[in-house]
Amino acid sequence: MTVQGLILRYSAFAIVAMALNLAAQRAVLSLGEGGWYFAAAVFAGTLVGLVVKYTLDKHWIFYDRQTGLKAHGQKFSLYTAMGVVTTAIFWGTETAFWVVWKTDLMREVGAVIGLTVGYVIKYHLDKRFVFNAGSAEARA
């Protein structure tokens, strides 16, 4: 795959994961207001985005064909660990926008900015530490 194709595909998958993340957040926030709902919404959105993005990245970015519970468990654990710092960027940006502007629109703008920065960093971490044996670049 060309670099442009990789960027396009990775960006499309990031947009899908972001949209599902924000949809999950909206679903939780529709249940109520306040700090606990906000925290639950961010957590739920992150979980949904994580599972979707892992599945798409594994198969369509890094071409990882390992199967089985043990292989998936190890990869998903590493994938999640690589996401800890990038999730902090996302949560911090989203929360900062919420604290400053206190509107759902600006909270979501902060989420998109934080997720975008996080996904760029995460791609490089995943390529190096999670999917290094299955990536097209590693096979070349």
Score class of each variant (00 low, 15 high):
76 F>Y: 14
112 V>R: 04
42 V>S: 12
66 Q>R: 14
96 A>C: 03
28 V>A: 08
34 G>V: 02
18 M>N: 13
31 L>K: 03
1 M>W: 07
36 W>H: 13
131 F>Y: 05
62 F>Q: 08
69 L>F: 13
28 V>H: 04
98 W>F: 15
50 L>D: 04
27 A>D: 01
43 F>H: 09
113 I>V: 15
114 G>Y: 03
65 R>I: 11
90 F>E: 15
2 T>D: 13
20 L>H: 00
120 V>M: 11
124 H>A: 13
102 K>M: 14
6 L>V: 14
93 T>N: 05
91 W>T: 13
68 G>M: 02
96 A>K: 01
135 S>I: 07
12 A>G: 09
48 V>L: 09
93 T>A: 09
12 A>P: 00
44 A>G: 00
72 H>R: 11
27 A>V: 11
118 G>K: 05
25 Q>M: 14
92 G>L: 03
86 T>W: 02
89 I>V: 11
126 D>E: 10
123 Y>N: 10
62 F>G: 00
77 S>W: 09
13 F>N: 03
55 T>I: 06
75 K>Q: 13
77 S>K: 07
41 A>W: 00
57 D>H: 06
4 Q>D: 15
89 I>T: 04
98 W>D: 10
114 G>D: 09
57 D>S: 11
122 K>R: 15
105 L>S: 15
95 T>E: 08
130 V>S: 08
102 K>Y: 10
43 F>K: 04
39 A>I: 12
74 Q>T: 12
34 G>Y: 01
132 N>V: 08
127 K>N: 14
139 R>T: 02
108 E>L: 08
121 I>D: 05
111 A>W: 06
13 F>Q: 05
56 L>D: 06
64 D>K: 03
109 V>H: 06
81 A>N: 13
60 W>S: 10
34 G>D: 02
102 K>T: 09
70 K>L: 10
125 L>W: 06
84 V>H: 08
64 D>V: 02
18 M>Q: 07
66 Q>L: 12
108 E>C: 06
137 E>C: 01
105 L>Q: 10
21 N>G: 01
136 A>E: 14
54 Y>I: 06
